[in-house]
Design a protein around this nucleic acid. Structure first.
Length: 568
RNA sequence: UGUCCCGUUGUGUAAUGGUAGCACAGAUGGUUUUGGUCCAUCUAGUCCGGGUUCGAAUCCUGGCGGGACAACCA
């Protein structure tokens, strides 16, 4: 596998228990020393940050062992799956920096083989056609603490089962009329071994196989064999599939019938990622999309890969996050602050510093010549000298942030107020002489004088100030819309309440649109998804819909703000 | 009242019979033309009881607590 992720941009972690298990298998000489993993999404929604953990794990294992990782779509349910999802999943994986082995695989490619194996099981007396209704099967199945009852159809002859199953495939029956079940043990303590469904009738168009089939294999009858067919050595998945493992092994045992095979998949489970203040189920995310609670799967408030991308997260930051959350088997709840830390950490080194005033108030430097414009030199990124310098225009009238002025400021306030002095970043030190309020009592204009000898880079004034403000020259400013985001939910675990719907915890202020923002002219021709640090504010990325005549920026994450914290 | 899985600072995660470490979060101080970054310091943990052992987070055992499993979903 050769891909971007093979450049270790972060310390490679290989200490989790899955690596240790693989090392053991290798030491025992299993699978002829081969390693092949796989990422097996169902194309029924967009990928989210929880999938990113799995992707980084599976592709990361492949990278570590110089092996491959397959992408396989587990597309056995045509009622929920769509090509749009197939496409988005591929895009997201590639964006994250990974490359799968060969062509993408599809469980639907194995339908014919799976059908043959189903026939084999019937022939061996290990599967039968059942005609019970879903409700009847549910009651007959028992509960985790009480054994189930055998179906009256359980002991049909092999010939009758073969005939019925062939006619199921031929389309002689309606949806739900008949199913194929494995004949295992209705009293098993493991519910999945109580004669599980193998095939159901679904007269539905499939996104790949079209109308070729009207019976579709269940996931449980598909997954293990798909892994086997592809030669997957380590089938890494989340904990909820642990109880399925005996069933996968049972199917394979029946099919292999004692035959020694070079590679047999070994399933290893790990705990899924939980992030606080959000939900992480495709069903719930789909609901947010369908009910227009968010603008789509890639709404920047969504925990989807596409949402995070649009929000301004980088692939590196998400990989770093996956690395830091680790892999284990205990339930976990990750603090969203860790994700934010990762993106700040990455963007701090990469993002160009620019000036943007989100809530502007005009400031007039009364002793600065009316028509003078000076080009002030400023560093693009103090963390990376190679990013160089640029110049920004300075003039008599500028915009500063409303928050940077207080009429009656406390002693610890290092910004502007009557009689106070501050440095304008990359420009002069100014002193506030006066200000004006509008009819509503809001500060509408601030009047200052500047110290000509305090020019940035050649300051001979000897003046010392505590605060530095960002600013934008009024006549050179470009207008922009800036979208601020807060967490989508106000509760740490919105879907963790038994009697309350997760939507009750939606944060009504999760999106704030600022339409009167003033940016330095450099930002006039940005490309969608370009990352910047708006000096003193945070990291922002141009939205996918941003255009030169209507600039739109999304706030990725704010800078750490010890002033705001101290004032809480 | 079944089977299986899991309990390490607030949150994650290491330590695989031998000094309980790291990261995030939190606190304090220093540097700073971003109240950012960076640097330094601090806070805080092996669920409980018994056993094995020179020695237990680790092995055994009994509790307690949490999770998964009863879709013609994956």
């Amino acid at each position: 596998m050769s891909n971007e992720a093979s450049k270790p941009d972060i310390e490679e972690v290989k200490s989790n228990f899955i690596y240790q298990e693989i090392d053991k298998d290798l030491a025992e000489g299993k699978n002829e020393g081969k390693i092949l993993t796989r990422f097996p999404p169902e194309p029924n929604g967009y990928l989210h940050i929880g999938h990113a953990k799995s992707i980084c794990l599976n592709f990361g294992i492949a990278r570590h062992y110089k092996a491959g990782c397959n992408l396989r779509f587990d597309d056995t349910n045509p009622t929920k799956e769509e090509v749009e999802y197939v496409d988005s999943i591929q895009e997201d994986i590639q964006w994250l920096g990974f490359e799968w082995e060969g062509e993408p695989k599809y469980a639907s490619d194995y339908f014919e083989q799976l059908y043959e194996w189903a026939v084999l099981l019937i022939q061996k007396g290990k599967a039968y056609v059942c005609e019970l209704s879903p409700e009847a099967i549910a009651t007959q199945k028992g509960t985790p603490t009480t054994p189930g009852k055998e179906s009256p159809y359980r002991n049909r002859s092999v010939e009758e089962n073969l005939d019925l199953f062939a006619r199921m495939r031929a389309g002689e029956f309606k949806d739900g009329e008949k199913i194929l079940r494995a004949k295992i043990d209705m009293a098993s303590p493991n519910m999945h071994m109580r004669d599980p469904l193998m095939y159901r009738i679904l007269h539905r168009h499939h996104h790949r196989s079209g109308d070729q089939w009207c019976i579709y294999p269940m996931y449980d009858f598909t997954h293990g064999q798909s892994d086997y067919l592809e030669g997957i050595t380590h089938s890494v998945c989340t904990l909820e599939f642990e109880v399925h493992r005996p069933l996968y092994n049972w199917f394979l045992d029946q099919i292999l019938d004692g035959e020694a095979v070079p590679v047999r998949p070994r399933q290893i489970e790990f705990a899924r990622l939980n992030l606080n203040y959000t939900v992480m189920s495709k069903r719930k995310l789909l609901e947010l999309v369908q009910k227009d609670i968010v603008s789509g799967w890639d709404d920047p408030r969504m925990p989807t890969i596409s949402g995070l991308r649009r929000r301004g997260y980088t692939p590196e930051s998400i990989r770093m996050f996956a690395d830091k959350v680790g892999v284990a088997r205990r339930d976990n709840g990750i603090d969203i602050a860790l994700l934010e830390y990762c993106v700040r950490e990455d963007l701090n080194k990469k993002a160009m510093r620019v000036n943007a005033v989100l809530n502007p108030v005009k400031l007039i430097i009364t002793n600065y010549p009316e028509d003078q414009v000076e080009m002030m030199e400023t560093v693009n990124n103090p963390e990376d000298e190679s990013m160089g310098n640029r110049t920004i225009p300075f003039s008599r009238e500028i915009y500063i942030e409303q928050d940077d002025f207080m009429e009656d400021a406390p002693k610890k306030f290092f910004r502007l107020g009557p009689g106070r002095e501050v440095r304008l970043k990359s420009a002069y030190i100014i002193k506030c002489e006066d200000f004006k309020k509008d009819a509503d009592g809001n500060v509408s204009e601030i009047y200052c004088t500047y110290y000509p000898e305090s020019r940035s880079g050649s300051d001979t004034s000897g003046l010392k100030v505590k605060g530095t403000l960002h600013w934008v020259s009024a006549k050179h400013a470009v207008d922009a819309e800036v979208r601020l985001y807060d967490r989508l939910f106000m509760d740490e675990e919105p879907d963790g309440h038994k009697d309350k719907d997760f939507k009750e915890f939606l944060n009504p202020e999760s999106l704030t649109i600022l339409s009167n923002c003033k940016l330095e002219p450099f930002l006039a021709d940005v490309q969608p998804l370009d990352n910047f640090q708006f000096q003193r504010l945070g990291y922002f990325a141009a939205d996918k819909a941003s255009k030169p005549d209507h600039l739109i920026f999304n706030k990725t994450v704010g800078l750490r703000d010890s002033w705001a914290k101290a004032n809480k």
